[in-house]
Nucleic acid binder design. Structure first.
Lengths: 248, 248
DNA sequence: TCGGATTCTTACGAAACGCGGACGGCGGGC
DNA sequence: GCCCGCCGTCCGCGTTTCGTAAGAATCCGA
């Protein structure tokens, strides 16, 4: 994973040193000496991160930062001459991801670049998604969506749907669902029935004739991922280990 | 330049070994066995750096760290038992400069102490910024801003917001927040509720209908970074630790 | 076609939950 | 010492959700 970094400094010596360190650290490095040049290079190269001197001839560093941010997703590390409180506030305001005060060691700068990139590229808000047909479900975020519309599910409905998505194309007896979703060994099985119905009400286009969660008569329910072009067109295989169920 | 280092650990053996290594490395070493003692020694000796066990009898290590920081500029290296990512996050949130996971080699600890001291004495304290939507937060400086207005947050509110910013788009149970932010294993969970409400009061445009910190019914809360141009429209996958969902 | 078993649908009471408001304690600053 | 901000706790209220019951509808085998 080779990241692109743009170094913006009007001092050729500083830029040279920083660039060479970053280059040796394995980054693809680009350079610019002033604000307009920086914006041009950024537009052309779409860097992942910009090391930006706060003091620039022509355009102000803060202004450049703002414009960069307007262009698209890019991390910014500010270089500021003074360890001044006001500069830090300014950096905060324009949303720099980090800042380094001069004088600084190039080694430290490299570390910060790596740190910021690790942070920003890993800025993945959600976890592994469960998918089935047009339905997607994020267990960590606890949100579910059908197509582009968010589903508002209760806890039980959410857990139930999650279980179905994890075990598609398989019939589940009510006892099993009660045990796996509710965590109860006993309990009124009609509870399962009712919750399946409530879930159907929210995800089936016609709850009266369900196509996603079908009834397996005398057994229980089965979640059938619809034949979507982007899911496997072959008969659904069950990726999970066979379930041994104590006889009712 | 001989630096003063304070070693805080309730295990006499650990404290002894660490202290002797640091002593041989040329540092002036002081020791304390628990939180209150640590604060007392720190107030008296004004050390340059504190090696702090996260697990302490009496006062929590994080709390001690906070109080130390309130006293004045001091570097902190955390000792944490578990190599847990979230512990690291916690340590960094309260502003630890580095952390070492047990078991560790005393030699490595000495290296880190030297490294941190080199770093902290060389420049003014600054740190990476956390961002989420229009909110930016600087853990080291302990300041937060929304857009260009500074937020005046209390300690708890700050730590809570910091935790949310580090884990955006994920649902957090109250127990989890209590553990990660407060550092308590038990405690009245309504405390979390109240602080979330107070935080909302300060960052939500309409606290009655929150959009940043949303309630996940029956679960807890989730920080939803508003649709920023710099986050992808569809949630990408994450390197985050997989989550096992307790079926309740 | 008939009958029993199974599932669907609806409704309702109870419990759980979140929220807002308020209160007392504690510690720091004046 | 006194005041003020922060924190943790508690209480009442409105809302959401859950589990169960009961009647209607459906399915399958005889």
């Amino acid at each position: 994973m080779t990241h692109r970094v743009l170094v913006v400094d009007d001092d050729p010596t500083v830029a040279e040193v920083v660039a060479s360190y970053l280059d040796r650290a394995g980054f693809t490095v680009d350079r610019a000496a002033d604000g307009p040049a920086a914006l041009a290079r950024a537009a052309a190269e779409r860097p992942d991160l910009v090391v930006l001197d706060l003091m620039l001839p022509g355009l102000d560093g803060l202004e450049v930062c703002r414009k960069l941010r307007d262009e698209g997703p890019v991390a910014v590390i500010m270089l500021t001459a003074r360890a001044d409180e006001d500069d830090r506030v300014l950096g905060l305001e324009v949303g720099a991801d980090d800042y380094v005060t001069k004088p600084f060691s190039p080694r430290e700068l490299v570390l910060r670049v790596e740190s910021v990139l690790r942070r920003t590229t890993a800025r993945a808000p959600s976890g592994p998604l469960l998918r089935g047909g047009s339905i997607s479900l994020d267990p960590a975020a606890r949100r579910a969506a059908q197509g582009d519309v968010e589903l508002s599910l209760t806890i039980r409905e959410f857990d139930l749907l999650a279980y179905f998505l994890r075990h598609p194309g398989r019939a589940h007896r009510r006892e099993e669902l009660m045990r796996r979703v509710w965590g109860w060994q006993f309990g009124d099985l009609s509870t399962v029935t009712v919750h399946v119905r409530r879930l159907r009400e929210k995800i089936e286009t016609d709850p009266a004739t369900p196509t996603l969660i079908t009834t397996v008569w005398g057994v229980g329910y089965r979640f059938d991922p619809p034949p979507d072009p982007d899911t496997s067109p072959h008969p659904p295989r069950t990726p999970d280990r066979p379930e041994q169920d104590p006889p009712l």
